[in-house]
Design a protein around this nucleic acid. Structure first.
Ligand SMILES: [Mn+2]
Ligand SMILES: [Mn+2]
Ligand SMILES: [Zn+2]
Ligand SMILES: [Zn+2]
Lengths: 136, 136
DNA sequence: TTAAACTTTGCAATTGAGTTGCAGTATATT
DNA sequence: AATATACTGCAACTCAATTGCAAAGTTTAA
């Protein structure tokens, strides 16, 4: 029985190197989405640029999705099972302005948004901001 | 008859200094939301930090709202009339991945988003990404 | 009217996340 | 084994945002 991280990398066609396994495990172990810095601090012996490149590869191969929550740091979260990062897979995120955690709101799909003539949607970054249950 | 920029500043309780008037006029004259750099390049004789501080003041006094479109530069747009930057005043934005213009989609209000227990919404940053009419 | 108090501005310097070049190491292919 | 390819660590760099500070402008109160 292969570990979860290795399994995911195999399915998504990403070569399971040491750094990549560590980074993906770190993301899987944490409920909230993590910034490059979070991961760097969590994996104290892995270089920032290697983590960075792992995350870029993960994003490209749809292992993770990134969230621009306006905190100044991009957050990363493992894509939920079945996610292909298509518009219909998109979900809202919640950024707590107090503890600065960013959560995936997987229960609410994003509605169809009526765009002006000839505008074509590719993806979206939807962030609700406020106080999370722990901070309100 | 007072000019539009001065009028807005007066209504919103912002001291109408030279720099502030220039910055607000610049924003009013441009359809698409503008970054600090855009404004700096547009107003060639005004210092970046002064523009920056004007924008911060404007945001605080709800003269403008900012949009985090993931381009690495925060964009600013004049709040539409009647806007108070409350959750019900929020609207989606559209970021063109080709020309990197960011548009306010004022026609679609943001729907009520069901949050988990005890999560409290304060504001939101909603960005649809894709190709605009000029680029698609 | 003048002096003190407060506000705004310009300049220079700093911050910090993100990104890249490059050479060394590891892994795969012949 | 020899070669080619992929991955990693380190140091350096980029660039938007932000800040400290002193000069300039404005308001307020003797
Ligand atoms: Mn998510
Ligand atoms: Mn807008
Ligand atoms: Zn919180
Ligand atoms: Zn465009």
């Amino acid at each position: 029985m292969m570990e979860k991280a290795e399994e995911i990398l195999k399915v998504k066609g990403v070569n399971p190197t040491a750094v990549r396994i560590l980074v993906l495990r770190y993301l899987l172990e944490h409920l909230k989405s993590q910034s490059l810095k979070d991961i760097e601090e969590g994996l104290m012996h892995t270089d920032r640029s290697s983590i960075f490149r792992s995350l870029k590869t993960f994003e490209e191969k749809k292992v993770v999705h990134s969230i621009e929550d306006g905190s100044g740091m991009i957050k990363y979260a493992v894509c939920p099972t079945g996610c292909n990062c298509d518009p219909q897979d998109l979900h809202y995120h919640f950024y707590c302005t107090k503890c600065s955690y960013t959560y995936c709101l997987l229960d609410n799909p994003i509605p169809i948004i009526k765009l002006p003539q000839n505008f074509k949607m590719q993806r979206a970054n939807m962030v609700v901001k406020g106080l999370c249950n722990k901070c309100s």
